[in-house]
């Protein structure tokens, strides 16, 4: 219980710490997304209900802080239709709205958290290789899905090289940070007497 509460408190702190994380200009302003990466790591260490709670919290705060809510711009849509191309019958520009909706991240984090839960048995055994790889995998999936949804909403498929470079750089940074986060979680688990490591045939708490 104490471990779960501590993880939730740490999760809140990562959002504030995220403000201090600088961008890497040479890699298309890629950066370490500390709060999401912490969530992906914590999703392996906590039980399913706590993971869902963390997913909701992370998604909600992430959207509240970063999501762009753009109101329907009817005047702009009209302008596009009556401009020179209006002579061709007028059509929707697909430009109105097109920001990701508020709450979308909650679902994303929930689904990706479930994926991370799948490797709990391995993590309990103290194996960090796959969990670190999985953090990279879910990070790139998270970014890719975001970009695909934006692309889908705005109507044209567009994947420049810079996008791939940014996604790969963000993912690598997430993978570099994840062992440290796992170390913090393990230390916290030891301090709070929460058992997430597999010890032969006996473990006091299986996390479910």
């Amino acid at each position: 219980m104490l471990f779960n509460v501590s993880v939730i408190a740490l999760m809140c702190l990562t959002f504030f710490a995220e403000e201090f994380v600088p961008a890497v200009e040479i890699a298309q302003n890629a950066r370490l997304f500390l709060a999401p990466v912490f969530f992906f790591c914590a999703a392996v260490a906590v039980p399913f209900p706590t993971m869902l709670m963390l997913a909701f919290m992370t998604g909600f705060v992430w959207d509240a802080r970063y999501a762009q809510l753009i109101a329907e711009d009817k005047a702009m849509e009209q302008l596009a239709q009556v401009s020179s191309v209006g002579g061709y019958g007028g059509f929707s520009t697909g430009l109105s709205g097109s920001g990701l909706g508020f709450g979308y991240s909650i679902i994303m984090f929930g689904v990706l958290g479930c994926l991370m839960q799948g490797i709990r048995p391995l993590f309990k055994k103290g194996r960090w290789e796959l969990p670190v790889f999985m953090v990279g995998f879910v990070t790139i999936v998270w970014l890719l899905v975001q970009f695909i949804i934006i692309t889908f909403l705005r109507g044209d498929v567009f994947f420049p090289q810079e996008v791939w470079l940014k996604m790969v750089s963000d993912t690598l940074m997430a993978m570099l940070a994840s062992p440290l986060i796992y170390l913090v979680l393990h230390t916290l688990a030891r301090a709070t007497n929460y058992e997430i490591k597999y010890e032969g045939l006996r473990y006091r708490f299986d996390g479910s």
């Binding site: 702009m76 020179s84 430009l95």
Partner: peptide, 25 residues
């Protein structure tokens, strides 16, 4: 000539070029 000016998706440099769409051919 009127159009709609916007940035391009995935242009992640600090000062990317913009696109002015819906002009006459």
């Amino acid at each position: 000539e009127k159009g709609i000016l916007s940035g391009e998706r995935g242009s992640l440099e600090n000062t990317p070029d913009l696109r002015l769409r819906f002009l006459s051919r």
